[in-house]
Design a protein around this nucleic acid. Structure first.
Lengths: 204, 204, 204, 204
DNA sequence: GATGAATGAGGCTTCATTCAT
DNA sequence: CATGAATGAAGCCTCATTCAT
């Protein structure tokens, strides 16, 4: 049973390698099985189809990310400090992925996101992305409200929109960070991102 | 030749429809030819391969976007006003795409971006995405410098990083806007994005 | 051993269900094992291969049918009465199968027949079908001869051919009966079949 | 276009050979393509799937058979003579198939019949077999009625049942004839079948 | 005996691309 | 230029069978 779990993880690991390198469509079950050290047919003992694997990958990736955020939010620190930590954590995750492998893995994460999103549009099936985002908003909305109540954050911004924008800007910028990772310094990028989100461009 | 050009455009148009619906890998040359009203074989009179088409699509999409930004930058208005207009324009483009077709087309744009990016990593070939981003920075760096010189923008931010971050946040947020487009109001989203980028979250 | 036997019967029972529904080729060992409540691997403790099972099924089906006929033939009644009873019995068997399950089981019987017949042609191996038919003829030839000797049946028909034809018409008609079972009444069908075989179409 | 038709026929011809030898499930598209002298992929220019081919085969086989019957029925001859000719024709068809190839082809015909029948049961889709049988009844019912009106055939048999039984016995016996073809003489078989259907077993 | 994970051959199908007409 | 039949490599998946536990 434990072994069983290990094997499934091994396949997922292999799938990440393969999909990261070639993309989901171009990555083949054969190659995954090969990378996982199993026979092609054995793949189907653990996943009912090639497609199914992306759902597991989705969970694998994002569950970790969001858990990291959720842990931060429970801490007893100021809202501003929390935002700093959330962004810190985001960069930590990015850097972590960089170490393990190359950029392609990060791209895979976005590819999976689009894959699932397109699928949900087509089948009008459950939209995993939207569900995921909601969990992020559930973190950010209370955080922003708390900041407003304490007079730290501006009160002229709707908390729902604030959460939507903050998460959008952080997550969205991550994408550019990945693409540009060799051209800009990580620490500087992070420092400026925090600063901009908190204080904006304009001179006061 | 004019006819020739028209036909090529027709194929590109068809390719957008097809790829938007099924994604690049799943969209077939047959289907594109069909949608373009030509024979499958004729496709290869205009494009040497299926892959080639994505380069044309890349240009088709982004050339328009960046041209719109470049026009704004030449105007004789204040830097803050320019940033507002740039964001305005971005949302205008998003809305425009929404009208023409559905979200899938926007996703296609991101898909193409990743496709080319992964390709450049693999082949160590020319990175079209990086090239594109540079053009955006060429717009934003002078803009920010101008604002700093006039004392409008904060002087404690490196202009290169400012450009990188501003573009990252705007473009990155667009992605979230697309995914969430039914849940948030366009005008509000735009207003808050401008406000946040200029003034940040913190109460002054 | 008794237990052993029970398990084997259970598997055969399960195989009938599975093959009846999907046909022999499409029915899988997995599904059979599942339906029999055993593990896939256990199947091979009782049958050396998937193919072997059809020999057992063949016996299972036809042994019953022919035994029923053989019992009739030993009775001390007139040849005409015997023919009536044979046809009665045939319909009884058909009805019985109908009750147990649906038509698909009857089709399975024919499928097995063809499977074995084709196999015997290919391998020039023992032709189980021919062997089976011979047993039927062994019943019918003496029966018809007896009728001829008693002056009941026409003497201008070769007994070998008579047996061949009678069995062919009864068994062959069964097939049409199965296919048409919803469109014609069982009792009427049986009554007319007996009548036609005995008296023919022509007005005397 | 003519060429097109030839090619499709060639594939059908090849499919018959292959399916006759191995059965439908065991016969592969590869082998068919091979036998037809085309590439595997080309098969799918003419048939959208392996399954589709059996519908064409069904038509190919039975259309010929029933047309032969329909031609007989239009002749201006006595009902008894017509029945003789119908049975003659049936044997002619059987013999014809025997000549072209071996028995396996005839078995294929029955296999297709069962395939389609099982399919219709499963999907509750159109029952091609039932449709086909109706066409046979449309021939036999009027024929039998005509015989009754002329006082040739017995009037105590319902024409619907007569048609059902006559066709069932003729067609059903064919199956036994195929299986037994080496053990019994064709002419004798045919002669006795006609005689039995017309006059029955009983001595008058 | 019982299990079910593992295997790998092989099947059906797709599709980018070519080429003769 | 236009066509679409032809190709064949390659992909996903199935499944009978084996074997270590």
């Amino acid at each position: 049973m434990n072994n069983n779990h290990n094997k499934k993880d091994k396949i997922l690991e292999a799938a990440i390698q393969v999909f990261a390198q070639h993309g989901y469509e171009r990555g083949t079950v054969s190659e995954i099985a090969n990378a996982a050290g199993i026979a092609k047919g054995s793949f189907y003992h653990y996943f009912s189809s090639k497609e199914e694997i992306i759902y597991d990958l989705f969970d694998l990736f994002f569950e970790q990310f969001i858990m990291n955020w959720e842990q931060i939010i429970d801490k007893n620190i100021s809202p501003v400090r929390k935002i700093k930590l959330l962004i810190d954590q985001t960069f930590e995750d990015l850097i972590q992925m960089q170490k393990e492998k190359d950029l392609t893995k990060m791209i895979l994460i976005f590819e999976i996101m689009f894959l699932l999103f397109r699928k949900s549009l087509k089948d009008k099936s459950e939209n995993n992305i939207e569900q995921l985002f909601l969990r992020y908003y559930d973190i950010l909305v209370p955080l922003f409200k708390e900041g407003q109540e304490k007079g730290i954050f501006r009160s002229d911004i709707d908390p729902e929109y604030a959460a939507y924008l903050i998460f959008g800007m952080i997550d969205g910028f991550s994408l550019h960070f990945i693409i540009q990772k060799d051209n800009y310094d990580i620490k500087e990028s992070k420092k400026y991102l925090i600063d901009l989100i908190l204080n904006g461009l304009v001179n006061k």
